[in-house]
């Protein structure tokens, strides 16, 4: 039962055996979501205050959530058990069982740099000030797999408006948490910790660039970047930095984690583009998690209408 790893300290005796789990799924379908809550609490799944709630499975079959192309959302279980989070481990299925130690409350995010009103926000305040909107977006990993994820969050532009960027601010730099005693992976000497990412200011102002605090309407699980992360759905997943501690407005294009690690392979833009290969891997196809056949990858991950205008006149093969 390794697969069902929950964040809270549920004794293994309380984790539902697979057979019962499946019958429960059938039952949930019959009973509907309202009934499900009662069933889950009867099963002894506790809701903890400090850690995000861990409802084991709220799959698209129950919720009917789809993206705007009509593809169903991946299950909560898929999304919380397959994570690229090198601060913990390079083993994607191993992240979920290692994130317990991360303390996500209290948590502060510093927004500074070329702004009129540099501010350090408590995440609690952010949650109150910027109510989460449901955003069902595709996430396309540079490794060639993808998911449809029902995030909850708000446009990054709203937070930036609060601090009033100066005219000289051309880029936004994001810095993720790097806490050695809570994140064992940051001991690796092969990476330029902390994780940093960047967007051009107009990209950051696009409505699709969101700060995410929820998944499936619940507080964002730690393995998915709690308490607050960036989501930039038209770019490869690594642009969407997790566990943000700092957002800086800067004049020059910032160094990023992957661009520093392998400059010729991970460009600053890293827009999803089936026609521009990673130097070593084709990006023409992807595996949607849960599907048997591979899919053709879509330009800008299917968000061409919303974002193509950001790049008019740019050679996207040069600016990969």
């Amino acid at each position: 039962m390794k697969k069902y790893t929950f964040i809270s300290d549920i004794p293994s005796s309380e984790i539902t055996p697979e057979a019962m789990y499946h019958s429960r799924r059938r039952f949930i379908k019959l009973a509907g979501l309202a009934g499900a809550a009662a069933v889950l609490s009867a099963c002894g799944v506790r809701q903890e205050e400090a850690t995000p709630a861990t409802v084991p499975d709220v799959s698209s079959m129950e919720t009917g959530l789809v993206d705007e192309l009509g593809d169903p959302a991946n299950s909560f279980e898929d999304i919380t058990n397959y994570n690229n989070y090198y601060e913990f481990t390079m083993v994607k299925e191993g992240v979920a069982s290692m994130v317990d130690k991360l303390v996500t409350s209290p948590w502060q995010v510093e927004v500074s740099g070329l702004v009129q009103k540099p501010t350090t926000f408590d995440v609690e305040d952010i949650l109150k000030r910027f109510p989460a909107e449901e955003r069902v977006y595709r996430l396309r990993c540079v490794e060639g797999w993808s998911m449809v994820i029902p995030w909850g969050g708000f446009p990054l532009s709203k937070l930036l408006a609060e601090v009033e960027p100066m005219g000289s601010a051309k880029y936004v730099k994001f810095t993720s948490a790097s806490i050695p005693d809570q994140m064992p992976g940051v001991a690796s000497p092969f990476f330029p910790w902390p994780y940093t990412e960047g967007l051009r200011i107009d990209e950051a102002m696009n409505d699709l660039a969101v700060l995410v605090t929820e998944l499936y309407g619940k507080p964002l699980p730690k393995q998915d970047g709690a308490p607050i992360r960036l989501v930039v759905p038209w770019k490869y997943g690594f642009k969407s930095a997790k566990a943000l501690v700092k957002i800086e407005l800067v004049e020059n294009q910032p160094d990023t984690f992957w661009n520093t690690s392998a400059p010729n392979e991970y460009g600053f833009y890293s827009n999803v583009n089936p026609d521009v290969s990673h130097p070593r891997w084709s990006q023409a196809t992807e595996r949607r998690i849960g599907e048997a056949k591979r899919r053709r990858t879509l330009m800008f991950n299917g968000y061409t209408d919303q974002v193509a205008s950001l790049y008019t006149g740019m050679d996207l093969a040069q600016n990969y």
């Binding site: 090198y86 490794e143 092969f190 330029p192 992957w258 690690s261 392998a262």
Partner: peptide, 16 residues
């Protein structure tokens, strides 16, 4: 070495 994320000669990335 070519399939992992990183740059083996540059000792950067998932190169262990």
């Amino acid at each position: 070495a070519w399939v992992i994320k990183g740059d083996v000669l540059g000792l950067a990335g998932n190169v262990g």
